[in-house]
Computed example of a mutant assay.
Amino acid sequence: MELIAIGNEQVRVTISPLGAEMQSIVTSDGQSWLWDGDEAFWNGRSPVLFPVVGKSPHDHISLDGQSYPMSQHGFARRSDFALVESGEDFCRFELKASQSSRTIYPFDFTLSLEHRVVRRAVVVTAEVHNSGHHPMPFGIGFHPAFVWPLPGSEGQAHRVVLDNGGSPELIRLSGGLVNPAPLPSPFVDGALTLDGQLFAADAMLFPDGAGAGLRYGTAEKAIHFTWENLPNLALWSKPGAPFVCLEPWHGTAAEVGGSDDLAERPYAEVLGPGATGRYGFKVELIG
């Protein structure tokens, strides 16, 4: 599929209509900051997660007592979006409910994704609109993967430092579902030094307390990553993989032994008829 390129004299970004997924972030010096999707590790780059985040029990959800198949992280990331507006430094894609989507998620919706380059930053904004006549439960999240180490920072320790200086409780996944038992925070005074073994037990989830921003990288080279209307944070990689995902979410996987009802999932969002929800993140490149 033909990629859409946007940018300015400092940063260039490409986006694919498949999933409206960002494919690259390249600065004017030729350095690439976004993971390249090498299938040897993980072929994603920056997918949007909708209408669920994470796994569902037996890969099914229930809505009003009826069961529907639902794959991990939902169907938006594997759907073709329509380009509805673009300019030199921005583009906006839309995914609307279809006959096919209604067989697994019986709601009328529009999911729009805008990418915009502002100086040395990329701003990604999602809007979910309920165009139907019934309350619409869903989860939404972002899954951007950044190179680890960052360009020119090989051999240097990389840290994640929360803007709020907090030490949020950690929870883990079991079989892809949330084990709600809290674990001690790996953050000390808001800081965590990354190590591949942190991800030996899959993603690290912080349902509360991570705030709305962090700095990832080294003292000289970093990303200031902030997010809007997304209360949950996950960090994920694979042991030995040269990327780390910074994932702000509104909604998580279902809990182990919990309900398969989508509206009852932790932090599920519910929009009333005609309502619109707005969510997003910003990637500011430093150094």
Score class of each variant (00 low, 15 high):
residue 284 E to A: 02
residue 72 Q to W: 08
residue 286 I to G: 01
residue 87 G to F: 00
residue 210 A to N: 13
residue 172 R to S: 15
residue 196 G to V: 07
residue 119 R to E: 01
residue 267 Y to G: 09
residue 286 I to L: 11
residue 31 Q to K: 12
residue 197 Q to L: 11
residue 200 A to S: 12
residue 47 P to G: 07
residue 146 F to Y: 13
residue 19 G to Q: 04
residue 4 I to Y: 01
residue 97 A to S: 15
residue 116 R to W: 01
residue 211 G to S: 14
residue 134 H to R: 03
residue 167 S to E: 08
residue 79 S to Q: 11
residue 141 G to S: 10
residue 187 F to T: 09
residue 236 W to G: 08
residue 148 W to P: 06
residue 135 P to F: 04
residue 104 I to Q: 15
residue 201 A to Q: 03
residue 155 G to P: 10
residue 261 D to P: 01
residue 166 G to K: 04
residue 48 V to Q: 00
residue 236 W to A: 09
residue 102 R to P: 03
residue 101 S to W: 06
residue 122 V to E: 02
residue 56 S to W: 02
residue 69 P to H: 15
residue 139 G to V: 06
residue 226 T to S: 15
residue 125 T to K: 05
residue 233 L to G: 11
residue 109 F to G: 09
residue 59 D to R: 14
residue 61 I to Q: 04
residue 207 P to L: 01
residue 133 H to P: 05
residue 125 T to G: 00
residue 140 I to H: 00
residue 281 F to A: 01
residue 157 A to I: 09
residue 2 E to C: 06
residue 231 P to C: 14
residue 265 R to I: 12
residue 126 A to K: 02
residue 25 I to F: 00
residue 104 I to F: 14
residue 85 E to P: 05
residue 128 V to L: 02
residue 43 N to E: 14
residue 244 V to W: 03
residue 61 I to V: 14
residue 209 G to W: 04
residue 108 D to V: 08
residue 95 L to E: 12
residue 226 T to P: 08
residue 88 E to G: 02
residue 201 A to D: 05
residue 173 L to T: 13
residue 181 A to L: 09
residue 218 T to E: 14
residue 69 P to E: 14
residue 231 P to D: 15
residue 25 I to D: 00
residue 172 R to I: 12
residue 151 P to G: 09
residue 256 V to I: 10
residue 134 H to M: 00
residue 170 L to V: 08
residue 122 V to P: 03
residue 30 G to R: 05
residue 106 P to G: 11
residue 62 S to N: 10
residue 118 V to M: 05
residue 1 M to A: 15
residue 147 V to T: 10
residue 80 D to T: 07
residue 116 R to A: 01
residue 172 R to K: 15
residue 257 G to N: 05
residue 203 A to W: 05
residue 107 F to S: 07
residue 204 M to V: 02
residue 4 I to V: 14
residue 13 V to S: 01
residue 279 Y to P: 03
residue 36 D to H: 04
residue 85 E to Q: 11
residue 279 Y to Q: 06
residue 12 R to D: 00
residue 264 E to H: 13
residue 123 V to M: 05
residue 210 A to P: 10
residue 138 F to I: 07
residue 41 F to S: 08
residue 283 V to Q: 02
residue 258 G to C: 04
residue 1 M to W: 11
residue 118 V to K: 05
residue 225 F to M: 08
residue 102 R to F: 03
residue 5 A to S: 10
residue 66 Q to S: 11
residue 158 H to K: 01
residue 49 L to F: 05
residue 85 E to D: 14
residue 244 V to N: 07
residue 139 G to Q: 08
residue 217 G to Y: 07
residue 132 G to L: 01
residue 171 I to G: 01
